[in-house]
Design a protein around this nucleic acid. Structure first.
Length: 884
RNA sequence: GGGGUUAUAGCUCAGUUGGUUAGAGUGUCUCGUUGACAUCGAGGAGGUCACAGGUUCGAAUCCCGUUAACCCCACCA
């Protein structure tokens, strides 16, 4: 038999790879510009080219794939642009680590050889992440795959750099920058992570020249004292007024330094006197500028002490601190030590403590770029989902400082600036040059540094579309429709793209920004390598399949909020897949040998058919509306509930009688038709969420077309909406639940059928029940089911249940436990009394009846009526039982 | 120092413009193996929606305050 071909248990291994290959081979992911269709485009947040997929990627790409597949099915001209980022520091660090293993390093190799090694590394590991994205089901247009260091992107980078330079928005400057001694490069402000640390505040005394007087200063970094070129106090500080203008002697070094007044100093902190080290502190740097102080560099780029530190030269800065403090103590210069909490900057990549150092770097002036970027969000040209992130974005841009874009690395876009050793001219050019633009000398050399990785990723939405060429893609797909990313990257990437997009792309880079949260571990901690608490998405795909992982990531996910990873939730998602699998299996088994051309007429449809079709139509509405609002979790929940709680739990059960009845072909065919219709369409709704299982089943079902992924998205079919059928089914379902409930409460024997008497209060409902008596019999293990005439006496010695419009009796003869039943009824009576009380008060409230909308008041009246009927019945039953 | 988020069942979380008897998953308890599925079915227990005010006919939902946890930003040595 054919059904033997369908495994009893859902096993994604059997088909996920196959279908991905099928989709890719048939070019379904590929988008050509089609001006007749509305575009829908997304650029992928480019993962690090040699990186590995983590849960963050899995979530991010699942969200994007859902949106893309949804819009593709809706008929948009859909482009999902994929690609990778060269990830300057990260990639270089990996290759350097590998070289270290071999006992060599990048300086030994030299720039050219080193870069060859990095490209080799990129070739070796560059496919890993994209193949992992494929295993997730991501329907990227791989034919268009880009890399931030490919020719086109490199050209875009040089164009933007040169253009900004010409506009005076890129400049070179010597100033304090954040220096990472480990990565050996300058980094930008946002690459510094501030953490509060317990440290000490050392109080030192500096002697006033030609006097016995001392000035006590407080510092957190005593080793920088060798670079002190002054001491500052507040101008209004009475303690020091008489000393302003005097000279102090820098201890150990015995260098004279001035004591001056500056508004910056906070008299209430420490001693009110600050040692000033312009070469190693940003504030001191600025004070130094104001007071013309010398910059004495005493910490080298590698974090060791320089020559200025005298005998400490060559020592690591912390080693120096230890020894220096001992010496200061011995010499009586150290007055006291205070425990002190303060924020210390760390490199976001290697977590080394940042040393502020003076160096020559390239900067981007931000003010004029930031302004339009702020405006674009304020005016609503770009919308954040959820909205609160707009505030964070605006606040950051309003307080932005210039961006240090040069990095002392080799892997990246080399800065297109050349220095002439003959005349000193700096030339910035779009293409490599061979001689100086000023004097024509060939004695020129290119700047050694490369650009911050985020400089090129900032151009991503338009450089991938072919910019600076005016390509058809650029015209059609730019601005992109939506950017999907985590909140942790708003400053690094989102803001930069908006600024660059507006400055060079000619428009905002995207219309919407859909922000998601982080995937944390089960204890709410961030997944990290150092904690070892990361869950590998590839492992989850291997064990449970991509559909399961995707559905797990999407359930309960709310825009912008973090979520936790639980294996239990993975299993729950897998169970859902299995449920769909088996519901389909049920249908397919029964489809064998049936007439696939059969189309029922209106009179063939049963109540259950009309009901499920109506429920299906509402599900279409709900899922579509939620997807359009980026409420993907809600959309998924709606499908889940429809499939499990309505289609499987009720509808399938109600088709069994027809399907197993060999003698009546037409009802069976009708049931199969409806099953097929609802299942096939529901699979389409589910496809963006679970692409593989939906394709696998869809291909087995009667269908039109070559793939579910290009099947049209279901639209609302108003003719399927059927309020009466829904109401009637609701009444029947309530009745079934009540009977099951009663049976369970008295411990009725599971297989043994109960006699059920139903007293209907309404003639219409009575007809519905009469026509569908079988539903109750089958689903509630009831027989016989008797519908009592309205004027019939209430049966005695029965369990009683009340639903809207009907009273239900289960005569239990001698089986009844009177006390138990009494207390059950009493309990229910309390509930209903409270409800009546609440409703009565509400309705007696004249302002409610006057001000609330009439349909709301009516609904409340109706509720009260129902409740009162129920109470009456309960009271009767209770009275009866009391007599026993 | 500034800003933000969260607080709902034992646990993890939904609840989108104020009108539900406040839901789901998971856990827990009782019962259930004949043809979709034990990765299942039926039923039960479990919540003063953090606390205190306010707006409103009506608040888990809107406003104010308090408390707690978390996060981001920030050049007090």
């Amino acid at each position: 038999m054919a059904e033997n071909n369908i495994p009893k248990v859902y096993d994604p291994k059997l088909f996920e790879k196959k279908w991905y290959q099928y989709w890719e081979e048939n070019n379904y992911f590929h988008a050509e510009v089609d001006k007749d269709k509305q575009p829908f485009s997304i650029v992928i947040p480019p993962p690090n080219v040699t990186g590995q997929l983590h849960m963050g990627h899995a979530l991010d790409n699942t969200l994007q794939d859902i949106l893309i597949r949804f819009r593709r099915m809706q008929g948009y001209n859909t482009l999902w642009m994929p690609g990778c980022d060269h990830a300057g520091i990260a990639t270089q660090a990996k290759v350097e680590a590998a070289l270290k293993e071999e006992g060599t390093g990048r300086y030994e190799l030299g720039r050219e050889k080193f870069l060859e090694r990095v490209w080799e590394w990129k070739e070796k590991y560059g496919n890993r992440i994209t193949s992992q994205l494929r295993s997730l089901g991501s329907s990227c247009d791989w034919a268009r795959e880009r890399f931030t260091m490919d020719e086109g992107c490199s050209r875009a980078v040089r164009e933007v750099f040169a253009s900004l330079y010409e506009q005076g928005l890129i400049y070179q400057g010597t100033r304090i920058t954040n220096w990472c001694p480990e990565c050996n490069t300058a980094i930008s402000d946002i690459e510094v992570e501030h953490e509060t640390e317990k440290g000490q505040l050392w109080h030192l005394r500096y002697q006033v020249e030609g006097s016995d007087e001392y000035v006590e200063i407080a510092t957190t970094r005593p080793e920088t004292m060798f670079g002190d070129t002054g001491v500052a106090v507040h101008p209004d500080d009475e303690r020091y007024k008489h000393l302003v203008g005097k000279t102090l002697i820098l201890p150990l070094v015995n260098r004279p330094i001035p004591l001056f007044a500056d508004e910056y100093v906070d008299p209430s902190f420490g001693t009110g006197a600050v040692k000033v080290t312009p070469a190693h502190d940003p504030n001191d740097f600025e004070m130094g500028q104001r007071h013309n102080l010398e910059q004495v560099k005493v910490i080298e780029n590698d974090g060791t002490m320089g020559e200025g530190a005298g005998k400490y030269a060559g020592l690591d800065r912390y080693e120096c601190r230890k020894k220096l403090v001992a010496e200061l103590k011995e010499q009586g210069i150290l007055v006291s030590v205070e425990e002190h909490e303060h924020a210390v900057g760390h490199c976001s990549r290697c977590h080394t403590t940042i040393e502020p150092l003076v160096s020559k770097q390239w900067f981007v002036k931000m003010d004029s770029l930031a302004k339009p970027a702020i405006e674009a969000v304020k005016s609503g040209r770009i919308k954040f989902v959820p909205e609160r992130f707009a505030k964070i974005y605006i606040n950051w841009l309003e307080n932005i400082r210039d961006w240090c874009i040069s990095r002392q690395l080799w892997w990246g876009h080399r800065i297109p600036a050349w220095y002439c050793d003959n005349c000193g001219q700096v030339t910035v050019a779009r293409d490599d040059i061979t001689h100086c633009s000023h004097c024509g000398s060939e004695n020129i050399r290119q700047d050694e540094d490369v650009l911050d990785t985020w400089f090129s990723s900032g151009l991503w939405p338009f450089e991938t579309m072919g910019w600076p060429e005016e390509t058809a893609e650029l015209k059609h797909f730019y601005p992109t429709s939506v950017l999907v990313t985590g909140y942790d990257i708003i400053f690094f990437w989102v803001a930069r793209m908006v600024m660059m997009g507006l400055a060079f792309g000619g428009d905002v880079p995207f219309r919407q920004v859909f922000i998601h949260g982080l995937v944390r571990d089960s204890e709410g901690r961030k997944m990290s390598k150092s904690l070892g608490n990361g869950i590998d998405p590839v492992e989850v795909v291997d064990k449970y399949g991509a559909d399961t992982l995707r559905f797990m990531l999407i359930t309960g996910n709310t825009p912008g909020n973090d979520m936790r990873f639980y294996w239990e939730r993975v299993e729950s998602a897998r169970n859902f897949a299995n449920k769909i699998w088996n519901a389909s299996r049920y249908m397919l088994m029964n489809l064998e040998g049936s007439d696939r051309q059969f189309v029922p007429t209106a009179t063939d449809f049963t109540l259950a058919d009309k009901w499920i079709l109506s429920r299906y139509a509402r599900t279409v509405q709900e899922v579509t509306a939620n997807l359009e609002k980026y409420e993907l979790g809600e959309a998924a929940r709606a499908i889940y509930e429809f499939i499990w709680s309505e289609f499987c739990d009720w509808y399938i059960e109600l088709t069994k009688a027809r399907l197993y009845d060999k003698d009546n072909e037409r009802p069976k065919q009708t049931a199969l038709y409806v099953l097929g219709y609802v299942l096939e369409h529901t699979l389409r709704l589910l496809h963006p969420f679970m692409p593989f299982i939906t394709e696998e089943i869809w291909q087995k079902l009667p269908h039109e077309g070559d793939s579910i992924m290009i099947a049209p998205w279901p639209t609302l079919e108003e003719n399927l909406l059927h309020d009466e059928a829904e109401a009637a089914m609701a009444a029947i379902m309530d009745t079934v639940k009540t009977v099951r409930n009663l049976r369970s409460e008295v411990g009725a024997a599971p297989g043994k059928k109960s006699e059920v008497l139903i007293h209907l209060l309404d003639e219409d409902l009575r007809r519905v029940f009469a026509e569908n008596r079988d539903y109750i019999a089958t689903l509630a293990t009831a027989e016989p089911v008797t519908l009592m005439p309205t004027d019939a006496p209430k049966p005695e010695n029965s369990l009683t249940g009340v639903v809207k419009g009907a009273e239900i009796y289960l005569p239990l003869k001698s089986l009844i436990d009177v006390d138990k039943e009494k207390s059950r009824l009493a309990k229910e009576g309390e509930k209903i009394a409270a409800e009546i009380d609440r409703l009565t008060k509400k309705l007696q409230n004249e302002s409610f009846t006057a001000k609330a909308p009439p349909q709301v008041v009516e609904a409340e009246r109706h509720k009260l009526q129902t409740a009162q009927e129920k109470q009456k019945t309960l009271a009767e039953r209770l009275a009866y039982l009391a007599k026993l």
